[in-house]
Amino acid sequence: MADQFKYREDREAYSAARVRALEALLIKKGIITDRSVDTVLDYFETKMGPFNGAKIVARAWVDHAFKERLVADTPAAIAELALPEGMAGAEGEHMRAVANAPGVHNLIICTLCSCYPWPVLGLPPYWYKDPTFRSRAAREPRAVLKEFGLAVPESTEVKVWDSSAQIRWFVVPERPEGTEGLSEAELEALVTPEAMMGVAVAGAA
């Protein structure tokens, strides 16, 4: 049994060499170019990322009618904002936002894989993809949230959304108290990927 969990001692160095060898072969054989991988990575640095989701949430905080439209028809509401092109692109073709409210806390999971709304949130953090989180969040969300440092009282209903078909979900967290005087740009800085997936709440100013 112990053998099942043995790793080679040079685990990371070996994987690093292997992925470099793979990329080199794919370039040599004309499958991808020497820029393809960087093209993808640059796109997630500049176009698709949590910076878009933060803008959407900040707008929802300052404009209640926008928030209602965002929950009712997520793609149409997102299209109102001046975000990069591609907000309905790869892994964002069908998105739905759910809003936290007094007495309701939402948590997004994917028990089968790692479905995630790329255009507005970028790529999933490690915790989201880890099988332990995916297993436990389905049955004991409060215990899991507590491990993230978030205590959700029993009087608050927890809604867990398992991303199993076409929809990519995200959460509109509640606006933190004491942020009345902040600009939209200052509010964006309070919104983390964790808050938009429901394992955290938006930070205080």
């Binding site: 990371e12 994987s15 690093a16 992925v19 470099r20 793979l22 990329e23 794919l26 991808i32 393809s36 991988v37 960087d38 093209t39 993808v40 990575l41 790869a90 970028g122 790529l123 999933p124 953090p125 490690y126 915790w127 880890d130 099988p131 332990t132 989180f133 297993s135 436990r136 969040a137 899991v144 491990e147 993230f148 440092g149 990927p193 964790e194 394992v199």
Partner: peptide, 25 residues
Amino acid sequence: LGPVSTETRVFVEPWEKRIFGIHTA
């Protein structure tokens, strides 16, 4: 299963970026 990981990085080793880029291509 024990405690969950709360690691917030997407890529925990630099090489992981390259396989993500290959997959997406």
